[in-house]
Every structure is written in structure tokens, then in C-alpha cells.
């Protein structure tokens, strides 16, 4: 493979399949939000209607995980093939995923404030689950700091790829292993909450699965969109250097 091939950022034009996918995501998410807000659920004390946040808050974390797995995959591919497009894909997946992670933390703080901490005026009480995901988000954020600190494009791609692999490896520990070994107010500290048969009412289960799939598809749309824009931006900036 020549270096020109490696640097090539040309992406194939999107076909009808992609257009169908984007329309599907739009319709799917509209239905999820409507059913999530209007569908019938049992009114439990403390939780009340906030149980509906399950459809919106939990998929944020699934998306953070998927996004960083995409970043890790392309980082690995970059280290093996040195193809520039993998650097673009890794960076964009990391950015979109981290935004979803920040949304997960923010929505979690609001949810906890009016359930766990109702009547106490506490927004943050050092719950292990929240502290651990904050540490994870800082690890994710450092990826962009590292990228910003390096000027040479090839060096940046390589170092960022190695760091991205590290950031992805810490994720299961900080988000799943450690919080479950400590006392937390967060539900699902025992076993595997997302797929447990006991923790979720049958009428909520399918909405929750649909919401999770919907947000993952939405991630994919935003991520591919940003990759296309970023690749085009680099290509155009290199065109402009020509006389």
C-alpha cells in the first residue's frame, strides 16, 4: 500500500440504504419518545413517573460503550494499517460517544436529585457509581486534550490510538465492576440489571429495548455524518493549498 492510498480520505457516496436508515431512525425515535412518555407504567413510591427515565438515561451509557468500542476498533485498525481514515473515524466516534456519556451523567444527577435525595437539596453526594463514571468521562475527555496537544498528524493519530485503547479498557471496570463492589444507591448493583427478569415491569421492557436500539442507531447516524463532514473538511483544506 502506497502512502497516497493510506492518506486517501475518499468515502463512497451514500446509497439508498443509508437514506432508508436515517428515515427509520427518525421515525423509530419519535415513536420511542411518544410511547416512553405516554405509555402506561405502574406508579411506584419515590420513583413515580421518573421510572420513564429508564428509557432515556440508561441508553446513554450503552451508547458511550458502543461508541468507544468503535473508537477502539478503528484505533487498532489505524495502528495496524496506518490508514488515515481510521483516525478520522476513531476521533468522531469518541466525540459523539463522550457527549452521550456526559448526557448520561447529567440526566442521572437530575434523576437522583428528585428520588434518592428528595427533600434534602443534595445534587451530588459522592455515590460510587457517579464518581466512577465521572472518572471514566475524564479519561475519555483526556483523549481530546491529547489530540489537541499534538501538531504532527501522523504522531497524533498513533498516540491517540494507543490512548484510546487504554480508555476503552478502563471502561468496563469503572462502569460495571467497581460500582457493583461498593455500596451505592444506584439500582442494579447485584447481577446484570439490564437483562434481569425481576427489575423491570413487562410493559416497560420492550419500550426500554426499543429505546436502547433507537439511541444506538441515532449514534450511528450522527457518527457517520460527522465522519463524512470531517473527511470532506480535510480533503477541502488540502485542495485549497493547490494553486
Amino acid at each position: 500500500m502506497t502512502s497516497t492510498d493510506r492518506d486517501n480520505l475518499m468515502l463512497p457516496a451514500r446509497g439508498i440504504g443509508y437514506r432508508v436508515f436515517t428515515v427509520l431512525v427518525a421515525v423509530w425515535m419519535t415513536v420511542v419518545v411518544c410511547v416512553g412518555i405516554l405509555g402506561h407504567i405502574s406508579n411506584l413510591p419515590i420513583l413515580e413517573h421518573t421510572a420513564r427515565n429508564l428509557y432515556f438515561h440508561v441508553p446513554m451509557w450503552f451508547t458511550l460503550m458502543l461508541g468507544w468500542f468503535v473508537t477502539a476498533y478503528h484505533s487498532l485498525r489505524l495502528l495496524v494499517t496506518r490508514r488515515r481514515i481510521h483516525d478520522v473515524r476513531a476521533e468522531q466516534a469518541a466525540l459523539v460517544a463522550t457527549v452521550f456519556g456526559v448526557l448520561g451523567l447529567t440526566t442521572g444527577i437530575v434523576w437522583a436529585r428528585f428520588t434518592w435525595y428528595m427533600g434534602t437539596n443534595i445534587w451530588w453526594n459522592g455515590d460510587p457509581r457517579q464518581v466512577m463514571v465521572t472518572v471514566q468521562l475524564l479519561i475519555c475527555g483526556a483523549y481530546f486534550v491529547l489530540r489537541g496537544a499534538l501538531d504532527d498528524e501522523r504522531q497524533r493519530a498513533r498516540l491517540a490510538a494507543v490512548y484510546a485503547l487504554f480508555a476503552t479498557v478502563t471502561m468496563p471496570f469503572l462502569m460495571y465492576v467497581l460500582p457493583r463492589r461498593m455500596e451505592s444507591l444506584h439500582p442494579g448493583a447485584e447481577g446484570n440489571p439490564a437483562f434481569s427478569q425481576m427489575d423491570i415491569a413487562p410493559e416497560m421492557r420492550w419500550v426500554f429495548y426499543a429505546a436502547a436500539v433507537g439511541f444506538l442507531m441515532l449514534f450511528w447516524w450522527i457518527y457517520t455524518l460527522r465522519v463524512r463532514v470531517r473527511a470532506a473538511e480535510i480533503r477541502v483544506s488540502e485542495l485549497a493549498d493547490w494553486p
Binding site: L47, E48, H49, F56, L103, T107, F114, T115
Partner: peptide, 23 residues
Amino acid sequence: LAADKLPVVLVVVLIIWFGLLFL
């Protein structure tokens, strides 16, 4: 806490909407 805490759901959905707007 009014209306069985439905406003909490609204705020959560709005936060996600603002995140998408940011992107």
C-alpha cells in the same frame, strides 16, 4: 415533584435534546 414527578422526565429528555443540538 408535581404531577407524580413527570417534570423530571421532561428535564431529562430536554438535556438529551440539548446534547443533540450541541452536536
